[in-house]
C-alpha cells in the first residue's frame, strides 16, 4: 500500500457537502491509523457510509486488516456488488462492524480486459455466493475461490448478462 499516496485532507476538501458525525470521525481516525498511507476516504453523506477506494490487488490484504484488527473488526460482509462502467468494472464491498455499529464501503476497479480480483472467501464465508453470482453475471474471476460454477445461470450460458453490453430486448420467442 506504499504506492497509494493520496492525501486525505484534499479529498475531504473536494466536496463541500460532507458532514461527518463524531462516530465517523472516530472511524476515520482509526482507519488512518490502520492505513498510514491512506487511500481515498469519502463520506457518502446520504447513508453515513465511509468509502474506501483502493487498488484491486490490495483487496485481500485490506479486507484482512479490516476484519482482524481488534478496534475495527469489520466482521459482517453485507454485499458484494459489481457495477459496469463500460470502461471499467467496479467491485463494491459493503461491510459492517458490529463492534462500531458502522458501515464501510470498499470500492475497487477491475479492468474489463482482464477481470480478475482476489477472492475474500477466506475472510468472510459470506463472500461465497456473492462472488459466484458476480462471476456469473459479470464474468469476473475471483482468484482463490474454490468453486466458481454458475450459480444463477445454467451451465453453458453464453455471455455476461449483468454487463451493459448484454442485449436486454434481444430475446427470441421459443
Amino acid at each position: 500500500m506504499e504506492n497509494q499516496k493520496t492525501n486525505n485532507k484534499e479529498s475531504k476538501e473536494d466536496s463541500d457537502i460532507l458532514v461527518s458525525t463524531p462516530e465517523q470521525d472516530e472511524l476515520i481516525s482509526l482507519l488512518t491509523k490502520r492505513f498510514p498511507s491512506v487511500p481515498d476516504i469519502n463520506i457518502n453523506h446520504l447513508q453515513e457510509d465511509i468509502e474506501l477506494i483502493i487498488e484491486s490487488k490490495n483487496i485481500k490484504s485490506t479486507c484482512r486488516l479490516l476484519k482482524d484488527s481488534s478496534e475495527l473488526n469489520f466482521n459482517y460482509l453485507e454485499c458484494i456488488s459489481l457495477v459496469d462502467y463500460e470502461e471499467k468494472l467496479e467491485a463494491v464491498y459493503h461491510l459492517t462492524s458490529f463492534k462500531l455499529k458502522q458501515s464501510l464501503v470498499i470500492k475497487t476497479s477491475i479492468s474489463v480486459e482482464n477481470p480478475e480480483i482476489d477472492s475474500v472467501i477466506d475472510i468472510w464465508r459470506a463472500a461465497d455466493w456473492f462472488e459466484r453470482e458476480a462471476h456469473d453475471l459479470f464474468g469476473v474471476t475471483f482468484l482463490g475461490h474454490p468453486n466458481l460454477e454458475p450459480l444463477l445461470l445454467f451451465e453453458g450460458f453464453e455471455g455476461y448478462p449483468g454487463r451493459k453490453n448484454f442485449p436486454i430486448n434481444d430475446y427470441k420467442e421459443w
Binding site: L137, P150, L151, L152, L153, F154, P161, G162, K164, F166, I168, N169
Partner: peptide, 15 residues
C-alpha cells in the same frame, strides 16, 4: 443449487 427463478430483475431495473 439455486437460480431456477432467476429473472434478471436487477438487469431489468436498468431499463
Amino acid at each position: 443449487h439455486i437460480g431456477y427463478l432467476h429473472r434478471g430483475s436487477e438487469k431489468l431495473c436498468e431499463n
